[in-house]
Deep mutational scan, measured.
Amino acid sequence: GYRKEQERLGIPYDPIQWSTDQVLHWVVWVMKEFSMTDIDLTTLNISGRELCSLNQEDFFQRVPRGEILWSHLELLRKY
């Protein structure tokens, strides 16, 4: 899972600490993992702090059909 990727690349476990690059890395990883092609990366060119401050409605406004990303983010925030 993504935890291995975080360990390998030194990405903080807590998404709130992610840099913009780390947010984009996570988005690309999830897209590959779940064979998603319809995500516009430019809408998530934000820091982890900004990402974690979005509520579900705001998130889906930025990322239509972003349910998998949202669920994955929720999982990461719990651990």
Rank of each mutant, 00 (worst) to 15 (best):
G1W: 04
G1L: 03
Y2F: 07
Y2C: 06
R3T: 08
R3H: 10
R3E: 14
R3M: 08
K4N: 12
K4Q: 09
K4G: 11
E5Q: 04
E5Y: 08
E5H: 05
E5D: 05
E5G: 03
E5T: 05
E5I: 14
Q6Y: 03
Q6F: 07
Q6G: 03
E7S: 08
R8A: 11
R8P: 03
R8N: 07
L9N: 10
L9W: 13
G10P: 00
G10Q: 14
G10H: 11
G10N: 15
I11G: 02
I11E: 01
I11W: 06
P12F: 00
P12M: 01
P12K: 02
P12Q: 00
P12I: 01
Y13D: 11
Y13R: 10
Y13N: 14
Y13E: 14
D14W: 03
D14L: 02
D14G: 02
D14I: 00
P15L: 03
I16A: 13
I16C: 15
I16G: 05
I16Y: 15
Q17M: 08
Q17L: 14
Q17K: 08
Q17I: 06
Q17P: 00
Q17S: 13
Q17V: 09
W18P: 00
W18C: 01
W18V: 01
W18D: 00
W18N: 08
S19P: 02
S19T: 15
S19M: 01
T20Q: 12
T20I: 09
T20R: 13
T20F: 03
T20K: 15
D21C: 06
D21F: 04
D21L: 04
Q22E: 14
Q22I: 01
Q22T: 01
Q22D: 11
Q22A: 05
V23K: 02
V23Q: 01
V23T: 11
L24G: 09
L24I: 10
L24S: 09
L24R: 13
H25V: 06
H25W: 04
H25K: 05
H25A: 06
W26M: 00
W26N: 01
W26T: 00
V27M: 09
V27C: 11
V27D: 02
V27T: 06
V28Q: 15
V28G: 13
V28W: 12
V28E: 12
W29I: 00
W29H: 04
W29E: 03
W29M: 02
W29R: 01
V30A: 12
V30Y: 04
V30G: 12
V30D: 02
M31K: 10
M31T: 15
K32Q: 11
K32A: 08
K32H: 13
E33K: 14
F34Y: 14
F34A: 12
F34N: 15
F34H: 15
S35E: 12
S35F: 04
S35Q: 14
M36N: 07
M36T: 12
M36Y: 11
T37H: 12
T37C: 12
T37L: 10
D38V: 05
D38Y: 06
I39C: 12
I39R: 05
I39Y: 05
D40W: 00
D40P: 09
D40Y: 03
D40F: 03
D40R: 05
L41H: 11
L41K: 10
L41E: 08
L41P: 13
T42V: 09
T42D: 14
T42Q: 12
T42S: 14
T43F: 05
T43I: 07
T43R: 13
L44C: 05
L44R: 00
L44P: 01
L44V: 07
L44Y: 03
N45W: 06
N45R: 12
N45S: 13
I46N: 03
I46K: 02
I46L: 12
I46C: 08
I46E: 01
I46D: 00
S47G: 08
S47N: 12
S47Q: 06
S47V: 04
S47K: 08
G48P: 03
G48K: 00
G48R: 00
R49D: 10
R49V: 10
R49I: 07
E50H: 07
E50V: 12
E50R: 06
L51F: 02
L51N: 01
C52E: 04
C52L: 10
S53H: 07
S53D: 15
S53V: 05
S53F: 06
S53Y: 04
L54S: 03
L54R: 03
L54F: 12
L54T: 03
L54P: 00
L54K: 03
L54C: 04
N55V: 08
N55K: 07
N55W: 02
Q56D: 06
Q56L: 05
E57T: 11
E57H: 13
E57A: 14
E57F: 11
E57V: 10
E57N: 07
D58F: 06
D58M: 14
D58C: 07
D58I: 13
F59I: 04
F59N: 02
F59K: 02
F59P: 00
F59Q: 03
F60A: 13
F60G: 09
F60K: 12
Q61D: 08
R62T: 07
R62F: 07
R62P: 00
R62H: 07
V63H: 01
V63I: 10
V63L: 11
R65L: 08
R65Q: 15
G66P: 13
G66D: 01
G66A: 13
E67Q: 09
E67P: 06
E67H: 14
I68N: 07
I68E: 12
I68V: 13
I68W: 09
I68L: 12
I68T: 11
I68G: 10
I68D: 05
I68Y: 12
L69C: 03
L69D: 02
L69F: 13
L69K: 00
W70V: 01
W70L: 04
S71Y: 13
S71Q: 14
S71G: 14
S71K: 09
S71R: 12
S71W: 12
S71L: 08
S71F: 09
S71M: 08
S71H: 13
H72W: 00
H72E: 14
H72F: 01
L73C: 00
L73Y: 00
L73I: 04
L73Q: 03
L73F: 07
E74R: 11
E74A: 11
E74M: 13
E74W: 05
E74N: 06
E74L: 09
L75F: 08
L75A: 13
L75S: 15
L75N: 15
L75Q: 10
L75Y: 14
L76Q: 04
L76G: 00
R77K: 14
R77V: 05
R77C: 06
R77Q: 05
K78M: 11
K78C: 11
K78S: 12
Y79E: 14
Y79C: 11
Y79I: 10
Y79N: 15
